[in-house]
Amino acid sequence: MSSDVRFTDFKSDKQPTWCPGCGDFGTMNGMMKALAETGNDPDNTFVVAGIGCSGKIGTYMHSYALHGVHGRALPVGTGVKMARPDIEVMVAGGDGDGYSIGAGHFVHAVRRNVDMTYCVMDNRIYGLTKGQASPTSRSDFETSTTPEGPKQPPVNPLALALASGASFIAQSFASDALRHQEIVQKAVEHDGFGFVNVFSPCVTFNDVDTYDYFRDNLVDLEDEGHDPTDYEAAKEVILDSDKEYQGIMYQDENSVPYHEQHGVTEDMSEIPDGAPDDAMDLVREFY
């Protein structure tokens, strides 16, 4: 790992095809800066991306990466980290990837508390399939598949994480570059599963949850004097559906990541040239 890594080292030479103005640009920049600031470099970093506009991030970043199956980014990241505790794992996806098709994995990744970072680019819409309701769309949000709105409450991913026993819950806004980077950086540094829901506006298909909307309504928890180690206070802001918050809602200071709980500390890529020396003991067990 070199000490002079710049965040641009995490940039690939592929130009993003995201729409101009897409929130994903800011989200990705903050992620790259957070990785560089925490002393990582592309050769010791593994990025897992899901499917959707957000999933393209693996192409635009430079690192070891897998762009996988829709909804399964967290399991892949889990496998990478368990096999290689020495590797920094960053998982990225959208609200559809994480809270719809991958919702089952989200719950369990949270409670497993594997030491990795999960950034969800939440634009409250399906962008790549050109504008259908997502699990975080408002109940009256009209789309091609929900002409009168989904008529069901949006998923509250922060509450889902809290209920699943999360050790780090945060929310950021792609356009507030400094705060976004700072929050992702805290998630990377966190000993355990660092979850950041990033407001990442879709400029093409979502005319409700826009940059202007978030700029006008975002409340920064830091300005509110919120103490992220206070579980009750965290619960309150997470369940407050009247406001859009930015900041670290909750952080368990005593978080013990999965690899420490389970003693998974070895680099599993290293194996002997033949069977292990004492392998005949495995056979003798069957006497």
């Binding site: 593994f46 990478v80 096999a83 290689r84 089952g104 599993m268």
Partner: peptide
């Protein structure tokens, strides 16, 4: 030095194994 993880379902199990393999573990 290895590990067994019980996944939440088979979709997850095979993707975890895939992650382990990409990380270099058999």
């Amino acid at each position: 030095g290895g590990h067994v993880v019980q996944a939440e379902d088979e979709l997850s199990a095979i993707n975890m194994a895939l992650g382990g393999a990409r990380a270099g573990a058999r």
